[in-house]
């Protein structure tokens, strides 16, 4: 098990100019780590569909490296997206999955078959170019250069510690974050898209 924050810290060293999307409870750490917010994008807003949105972004920007940090609860809502992605073979797409085994934002209830499912095997079977499993930070850190230089779509499943939130939503810590619309405006401006 790895702390999600450590995953993002390790990734940041290899980010380069990649466009980055994060989501889920663990995604909150990225805001403290990113050094290029204009290339951070948020396209969530529907149950489990941010992966499909970022896939669309990768298709539309084939010259850009596009990285998505997914969660297993979201992916399970729309597992067929793995086949959709693999079918179009976006070689600029890197798909991380932070697997904490539960719905952390709703109190930590386990996702279906949380103990035994192998997401990397599912992605590889769906047709991804490469798929990895990690539960050790050092192994992940030493593999990130290879992962980021690999022809996509690449899938990277990482076992992370759950950061369960049990307080009623109204009592949780509020973190400043940019709206989806703002991230879209900033990214388009950065890339010169009108």
């Amino acid at each position: 098990m790895i702390e999600a924050k450590k995953v993002y810290e390790a990734f940041q060293e290899h980010r380069g100019d990649a466009i980055v999307s994060v989501q889920g409870t663990s995604g909150k750490h990225w805001a403290d780590i990113t050094t290029n917010v204009n290339r951070d994008i948020s396209l969530g807003g529907s149950m489990g569909q941010s992966t499909a949105s970022i896939f669309g972004l990768a298709l539309g920007l084939p010259e850009q490296k596009v990285v998505h940090f997914d969660t297993e609860g979201a992916l399970l809502m729309n597992l067929g997206v793995l086949a959709s992605i693999a079918g179009k073979k976006p070689n600029n797409f890197v798909h991380f999955l932070l697997d904490n085994g539960c719905y952390a934002t709703t109190g930590g209830q386990p996702v279906p078959n949380s103990e035994d499912i192998d997401y990397a095997m599912v992605a590889k079977g769906a047709g991804y170019s490469a798929a990895y499993n990690f539960d050790d930070l050092e192994e992940l850190s030493t593999s990130l250069e290879e992962i980021m230089n690999q022809k996509g779509p690449v899938f990277v499943a990482i076992k992370v510690q759950a950061e369960v939130e049990n307080l009623p939503i109204g009592m949780r810590e509020k973190r400043a974050s940019r709206s989806r619309a703002q991230t879209i405006t900033d990214l388009r401006s950065e890339l010169g898209i009108s």
Binding site: S46, Q49, T51, A52, G56, L59, G60, L187, R188
Partner: peptide
């Protein structure tokens, strides 16, 4: 619709 949103953002 989600894929379409990503493509729209990409211009």
């Amino acid at each position: 619709m989600a894929v379409a949103l990503g493509l729209n953002v990409a211009g």
